[in-house]
Design a protein around this nucleic acid. Sequence first.
DNA 1: AATAATATTAGTTATTATTATTGTTTTTAT
DNA 2: ATAAAAACAATAATAATAACTAATATTATT
Lengths: 133, 133
Amino acid sequence: MDLKITKYSRQRDIILRILRSTKCHPTADWIYEKVKKEIPNISLGTVYRNLNFLADKGKIRRFSFGGTTAQFDGDLRDHYHIRCDWCKRIEDVPHISTRISCQEIESLTGYRIHSLNLFFSGICPECQRKGEQ
Amino acid sequence: MDLKITKYSRQRDIILRILRSTKCHPTADWIYEKVKKEIPNISLGTVYRNLNFLADKGKIRRFSFGGTTAQFDGDLRDHYHIRCDWCKRIEDVPHISTRISCQEIESLTGYRIHSLNLFFSGICPECQRKGEQ
DNA sequence: AATAATATTAGTTATTATTATTGTTTTTAT
DNA sequence: ATAAAAACAATAATAATAACTAATATTATT
Ligand SMILES: [Mn+2]
Ligand SMILES: [Mn+2]
Ligand SMILES: [Zn+2]
Ligand SMILES: [Zn+2]
């Protein structure tokens, strides 16, 4: 919750800036390669540590779409995701008009709900054009 | 799609039966431990191979909820999931009345949509009772 | 400003999940 | 019964992530 109680770190700052400046949903390794251009001797462990830290504090999102590696999203605005089953690309679904009643889910499950994640999978336009697989 | 073209395998049969008979959303390793009681010398690789095979054929679901290991679900009926942020348990959300318009998403993104996954996270009733963390 | 306390780091090693390989066995088609 | 194909167990290899440690950077206190 409170990022204030932590000390400043240039590494964390840059990691957060890079994540926020991309539209893709990168892996720790992807971010590592980017940060290395600014801090050549940063270590992958630092990237993981800070990504997990930021995710735990709710400053970024961490998820994985069936794949084996975690992916991160610096965009905290309400939005959803779609993945192509063939080329595996992930894109934002910017806005949908339907409202899902979290209150209904809360009374149905007894949970206090923090977040709602909606993701679709299917075939992207490009793969549709290219045809089978 | 067609499981028919493959040869019969007792191992795959048992893996599928075990997955279908549990309400939890187990990892490959959890299933491995169960299968071992029936086939003591089965190998973990066989479990992985068959789970991936079944998932690729659409006979089971494979996903991971932020954690580092894949989880599987033998229940193909439309239903959604919720995870407790504290104890990490995952449960089914059996049914929700909201309608999400996949057609709207299709026209918005150009994707041909195959599936819709909805998952919530929050605090389970038990953790709420126990209090902080 | 100097000092002390502590968070964070780079570098490294360890762990864990998953996939690939290989030689053998089981299943199916002829 | 024979042969081809698929699946197997066992194992080695890979890849993702976490843990450790001594050094450094940041903050708080004097
Ligand atoms: Mn996004
Ligand atoms: Mn389920
Ligand atoms: Zn595609
Ligand atoms: Zn809980």
